[in-house]
Simulated scan of single mutants.
Amino acid sequence: MSEFISPDDPAHDDRARALVRIGHEAIAVANDALLDEYFAEDFAFHGPAGDMTYPQLRAFFASMRAAFEGFSCERRTLVSEGDYISARTSMAGRFTAPFDASPLGTLPPTGKPMRLELINVFRYRDDGRLAEEWVQYDNLAFLRQLGVDLVPR
């Protein structure tokens, strides 16, 4: 049994399966047309490094794909209720090219694997498009995986 949720898992509702699918088909690989259909134009992202608009988040995804070979976006846990879905998300890849979207500027590749674990809460509009997202993750641990050590252990 896989640790990740399949986009065809019947244990989850249509909206939750679509969230899994968008991770596979448009975040892990470049498919801006699918992202444009999924995200509301006025989408708002709230994360540890601050807020982003949809175009800024789309550019962040592109930076992740460019820097991390074999980049993936998988869901481990989904809880869906009304207009909201909560998720445990895992993004991973091998750090093989410069990463230009870090909070510290461009970082050189290390060749090492990276795995970013996130907790997300998504809010959807009545038309089904993603309107807002709140994300929490350990930015310090993420930077350490990228070869930055801001605080000695």
Rank of each mutant, 00 (worst) to 15 (best):
M114F: 13
D42V: 04
P108V: 08
I27M: 11
L150D: 07
R15M: 04
F71T: 06
R94Q: 08
F99K: 04
P98N: 08
K112E: 04
A18S: 09
R129P: 03
I27F: 12
M114D: 07
E69D: 10
R123T: 04
A44R: 14
R17W: 06
E37S: 10
V29L: 05
A97V: 09
H24M: 11
E132C: 00
D149E: 15
L78M: 10
D8P: 09
A67Q: 01
L118Y: 09
M114L: 12
A87N: 08
A40F: 01
M64K: 03
N120E: 15
A30S: 10
G70C: 02
Q145I: 04
E25S: 00
S80Q: 06
R125I: 06
I119R: 15
P113V: 08
R123W: 00
L107E: 07
E132G: 00
P113Y: 12
F99P: 05
F71R: 00
R15P: 12
L150G: 13
C73L: 03
H24A: 11
L19Q: 07
R58G: 05
G70R: 03
R76G: 12
A40L: 05
G23Q: 03
P98I: 06
R76Q: 15
L118E: 10
G50R: 12
T106F: 01
A101S: 11
L35Q: 11
F61C: 09
W134D: 02
M114E: 02
A28S: 13
L118K: 08
H46Y: 10
F43Q: 06
S2G: 09
A30V: 02
G70T: 01
M1Y: 13
E133A: 12
L107I: 06
R75T: 09
E132N: 01
